[in-house]
Amino acid sequence: MDKPMNIFDIAGRAMSAQLVRLNATASNLANAGSVSGNENQAYRAIRPVFSTIVEKPGVATVKVDKVVTSDTPATRRHDPGHPLADANGDVWEAGVDSSAELVEMVESARMYQNNVQVIQTAKSLLLETIRLGK
């Protein structure tokens, strides 16, 4: 049987989940302006899907179940001079909303930082408790 989750396990798992979210956002932003010669090959944004892990009432954390591809369609743009243009002179731009990705990035970074603060506070409280016991 696994040992019960403690505050460090809970916050650590939450930080790992936010790191996956931040990596997905970085991938999306990196591909935001990319183009392709056809719609099927155009980059689509990716998103992690989280689920809750409940050990007992009041003790829960999060994990990444999977990473899914967005259904946001690629944008067709007429650019006959582009080397990837199809027979009609069109290229397909990645289905990524840069503004939404920036919001996602800020939110995941804040969530990560919140969990760092939880760990720092728990560590301080434990050290203070040990100091009081001496």
Rank of each mutant, 00 (worst) to 15 (best):
T69K: 10
G33A: 10
A30L: 08
A26Q: 04
V20A: 05
R77T: 15
R13N: 13
K134V: 10
G81W: 09
M105E: 01
M111W: 03
A24G: 04
N115P: 00
G95I: 02
P83Q: 14
M15Y: 12
R47G: 07
V106Y: 04
G89D: 10
V91T: 05
D65G: 08
H78S: 11
N31Q: 06
A30C: 09
Q120H: 10
K63I: 09
D65A: 12
V116T: 03
N38S: 06
F8M: 15
K134D: 10
A87D: 11
D71K: 12
R77C: 12
A100Y: 02
V49A: 01
D90E: 06
A30E: 09
I10S: 08
A122P: 03
A85T: 14
V116F: 05
V106D: 03
P73K: 13
T69G: 08
R13F: 12
H78L: 10
G95F: 00
D90G: 05
V118D: 03
D97Q: 04
R131M: 06
P73M: 09
A26F: 06
S70P: 03
L102Y: 08
S34D: 09
A100T: 02
Q113W: 03
Y112Q: 05
D71T: 12
I53E: 01
M105D: 04
V68S: 06
I46L: 09
A24I: 00
Y43L: 07
L22S: 11
P83C: 14
K3W: 13
T52V: 10
K134W: 12
T72G: 11
A74Y: 07
E128L: 14
E39V: 08
A14S: 15
R44F: 01
L102I: 11
F8H: 13
V68P: 01
G33I: 04
N40C: 02
L125S: 15
K56Q: 12
E93V: 12
L125V: 15
K123I: 09
F50D: 05
T52D: 03
V54T: 06
T121C: 07
V54D: 03
R13A: 14
